[in-house]
Computed example of a mutant assay.
Amino acid sequence: MSSSQDIVLLLTHSGDYFTVDKVAQALSKRGASPFRLDTDLFPLEVQLSARLSNSGLKHQIRYGDRSISTEQVKAVWMRRLWEPKMNPQMEPHLQSGSIRESRAALDGFLDSLHKLRWVDALPRIREAENKLLQLRIAAEVGLTIPQTLVTNDPTEARQFFQELEGSMAAKLLTPLSYSMGKSSLFMYTSAVQEQDLAEAETLRYCPMVFQEKIPKLCELRVIYVAGELFVGALEASRYDGKTLDWRNISPEDCPWESHQITEEIFGQLNSLMTRLGLTYGAIDLIQKPNGEYIFLEVNPTGEWGMLERDLNLPISDAIAKALLN
């Protein structure tokens, strides 16, 4: 248990709900004091002050009716960092400058907490988000990965399509949406048709990921928290043929179900997360009709609320325990 004076900083944004509330409740039950920081409201509604001298430094943040200093913080949950909201009446050049300076000030505040317990530290998250790194390490620890091509060469994409006999999917290496809504560049994982390759010349402007389409019995979202795994499954027959990406279906059409993975896969995923240096990760797998598991990717800050909501999995408590460990 923690001291009632221990503050755990929850980095998120003002549009976030459920998951951040559940973790805050779990921390309170364990005797800690959660402090929610909606990063999109800095600087308009959040005040930050930093005092530095040769004798040390002290940061203070005020948000609403609460104020904390860096000395009070025990741990940090990196849920989300968000684009600062600015007054739309500001001139564009002043707005961009204010956003840049606000980011720099917030980065300085977060750096002052670098010695604390993070789930997970920003440099570790940014490194682990590299999808090619994930696939390489996954193969090294024994997980099966899809045949994959990352290219901006239209000829290579067409050749790969032929090698896979047309059974190919496309997705992005990174999310291109950083605002509250999806950007025009946001895309779900989608099947590639032969006619799509007629426009493959646009790859010269932006490389993409191409993978073999894996036959599915179910898709799995596996939540890893400090060596514990929480697993939810979606039965592919409920949506296969309509979409390749479960994020594009409604929970009513395809509810989450409980699933038990094998001890071998458990060990391999644990090795993967240890190699990536992550305390938390949302892992996507496919189980083929023959029972084989295929690793797709890890999202170091991926969603898990639907699994706690629908399957009553105690993920928020596991995160709270990891923060206070």
Rank of each mutant, 00 (worst) to 15 (best):
L122S: 14
L122G: 11
L122H: 14
I125E: 04
R126L: 09
R126N: 15
R126H: 08
R126V: 07
R126A: 07
R126K: 10
R126P: 01
E127C: 09
E127M: 05
A128L: 02
E129G: 06
E129S: 07
E129T: 06
K131W: 03
K131H: 10
L132T: 11
L132G: 04
L133V: 13
L133Q: 14
L133G: 13
Q134G: 04
L135K: 07
L135D: 07
L135V: 05
R136F: 12
R136M: 12
R136I: 12
I137H: 12
A139E: 11
A139V: 13
A139W: 08
A139M: 15
V141K: 11
V141L: 06
V141G: 15
V141H: 10
G142L: 06
G142A: 13
L143H: 13
L143R: 09
L143A: 12
T144M: 02
I145V: 15
I145E: 12
Q147L: 10
Q147M: 10
T148Y: 02
T148D: 06
T148C: 02
V150Y: 00
T151Q: 00
T151S: 00
T151D: 00
N152A: 04
D153M: 01
D153Y: 02
D153N: 07
D153I: 01
P154H: 04
P154L: 03
P154T: 08
T155E: 05
T155K: 13
T155Y: 03
T155F: 03
T155C: 02
E156N: 08
E156H: 13
E156W: 04
A157C: 01
A157Q: 01
R158F: 01
R158P: 02
F160D: 01
F161H: 06
F161K: 07
F161D: 04
F161P: 00
F161G: 06
F161R: 04
Q162F: 08
Q162D: 14
E163M: 03
E165N: 12
E165I: 08
E165Q: 13
E165R: 06
G166W: 00
G166M: 03
G166N: 07
S167R: 15
S167C: 08
S167I: 06
M168E: 03
M168A: 08
M168L: 03
A169R: 06
A170E: 14
A170P: 08
K171W: 00
K171T: 01
K171S: 02
K171I: 00
L172M: 06
L172G: 07
L173T: 07
L173A: 07
L173I: 03
L173M: 04
L173W: 08
P175A: 09
P175C: 09
P175Y: 09
L176P: 07
S177Q: 01
S177Y: 01
Y178M: 06
Y178W: 11
Y178P: 05
S179H: 14
S179G: 13
M180Y: 15
G181T: 10
K182R: 14
K182A: 03
K182Q: 08
S183E: 10
S183P: 10
S183F: 06
S183K: 07
S184G: 14
S184K: 15
